[in-house]
Amino acid sequence: MMASFCLFPWLYMLLVSLNDRPDFLGTQGSIGLSGGHYLAVLTERSLHFLDYLRNSAIVALSSAALGTVIAALAAFAVTRLDLPGKAAVLFFVLAASMFPQISLTGYLFRLMTRLGWINTYQGLLFPYVAWTLPLSLWLLVSCFSQIPKELDKAALVDGCTSWQVLWRVLLPVARPGIFAAFLLSFIAAFNEFLFALMLTTDHGARTVPVGIALFQGLHGEMPWGDIMAASIVATAPIAAIVALFQRHIVAGLTGGAVKG
């Protein structure tokens, strides 16, 4: 029952996307299966769906990668190096993660306009990195602080520089946590809506959520079949990630939130 509660909208999405007519429930009958909507979404250039997908993939992947690296360096500093005001930094970053996005978008829009970054990848990339950093930092700090300090000492005595301690010992040992941070940042960036809505104007940089939200028919009536087919294509990778890596995701969510 629980599973069906979680799944039914998605299954419905699947059903509509495969159907000729969106109103098949109303007409009590003919469920004509067809892949026509998928064909349209994937081949019709004027729908720009593939552009959105590419933009999303590029922006989400690169911001997750960059954000995870930056957060890992920072978590190393917080847990292992002398740093005045560690607690203040952590608190400040946690507080930053609670700021409403809308409070940032007004200024960001003008900043990006001035930089000429509206509707560019970097215009989304940088805010996304900043936006996902707090969560990654908290997650990686709790991950790093679970690695015993004696391991660092052993590495130092074995002749490592502090850089080698990070690179050859901490990062490999923390790999599950780093992967979780990457996954969570990726999902967060892939799902982000408001920044993408404000900072993009067309298929040059527009991401999938905005693309699908603004998807209008060419002829008045909503092309529900196409929208749902696009939604399926866009969410299938996410669903696959969830199915494959749910353990990492759960660990990441609880590590980042509960310890915080």
């Binding site: 015993p148 004696e150 391991l151 000492k153 052993a154 590495a155 005595v157 074995d158 010992v169 490999p172 040992v173």
Partner: peptide, 10 residues
């Protein structure tokens, strides 16, 4: 060289 109580193996 050092040996630790927890062994600190990688």
């Amino acid at each position: 060289a050092m040996v630790f109580q927890s062994y600190a193996l990688y």
